[in-house]
Design a protein around this nucleic acid. Sequence first.
DNA 1: CTAACATTCAAACGATCGTTTGACCCCGGA
DNA 2: TCCGGGGTCAAACGATCGTTTGAATGTTAG
Lengths: 207, 207
Amino acid sequence: MRSATPSFSTKERILGVAETLFARHGFAGASLRQVTAAAKVNLAAVNYHFGSKESLIEEVFRRRLDQLNRHRLAALASVQARSEHTLEDVLDAFIRPALEQSMDSAGGAAFVRVLARAYAEHDERLRKFLSDNYGHVLRDFAAAFARLLPNLDKEELYWRLDIVAGALTYAMADFGMIKRKSDVSERSHREQAAQHLVRFAAAGLRA
Amino acid sequence: MRSATPSFSTKERILGVAETLFARHGFAGASLRQVTAAAKVNLAAVNYHFGSKESLIEEVFRRRLDQLNRHRLAALASVQARSEHTLEDVLDAFIRPALEQSMDSAGGAAFVRVLARAYAEHDERLRKFLSDNYGHVLRDFAAAFARLLPNLDKEELYWRLDIVAGALTYAMADFGMIKRKSDVSERSHREQAAQHLVRFAAAGLRA
DNA sequence: CTAACATTCAAACGATCGTTTGACCCCGGA
DNA sequence: TCCGGGGTCAAACGATCGTTTGAATGTTAG
């Protein structure tokens, strides 16, 4: 009776609210007092459960990225297991898991916006954390792209992957704001969105 | 180089330093005390010359965007004056002025990173300010794209323009960090970069 | 029941935030 | 010469920041 959502623990409520507020106001812009107030928990709960604001931020990433990158690597492995696969297949393996996550979980849509923020922030600590924990995923995909584009020299490939990654991150972050025709369901809308992104990125990589 | 020369007024030094620190730490992350210390001016100078931190942020944008968008509109008009012009021409009119600015002025490179931050921030006040003052430029370009892509319905076009704008903003923001071959000059490097971006974006829009 | 531990709570810590104040300096026009 | 206003300055304002404390409460095992 103490809370409207007693099924969620204090830790989980903090993570969920922090995700939303970090997406909306940035890491420096959202204060722990705003987070704990919205989560209906005591201010000290953050430092008790996570140790510091910095660690809370990392935990917000870890909770989603572990699952997301597992799905991405699985999708990539599935694609590469086939005798033949195209650039579009690899791009789909990268994009679709992010779209799925932004759909199925309530905070998933907020998290892709957090990701876009992390992309824009050039904060050294945060970049190192992401690179240390999830850098191997991006390297695997880069290798897959390199195999499919043998005529492109390495420097040029990295160039384009950088643009593609930035474009995809921004595009996915803005998904929640793009109006859709009312006669198509949410799922088919995202389905179309994924196909558009894949074709767009593939055209850019092959140009 | 001559960062603390007395030939620059207090106002100009504040604007220059604020641009750099906003690019590095964000609008909420860079404090007025950091700005005024780096600019070697008194803390109160910001509120004296600009009124508030919010107004300082707007002035940082205004100083660069006025010139940037003037160049963009001039380039667009020049392109459209020709009897025939392609998608690549219009994209070039949008991209090249930004690249020029990021090259010729010392703080220009920092400013495109500030722009990328503004893109990631969904702050209501900042978006309204930018939309009110520079929205007509984007509308002019959107109309030019629509004329060149008559088979694309409006909804799909806005979709792709959103992706393209995000990709270009991000790519330009990261220009300073992309390694270039040492045997090509800075100018020719940017020249190649512009061509790559244009071809990449055109392929995505036509896909 | 009691002891031991886990969690929550109100309150306060020192640091830093944006902003304001009022004295002070410099300098061109009476 | 004096005056007055634009500019700079150190200092302080109240608010808010992340973090810490110690007591109160809840939970679990012996």
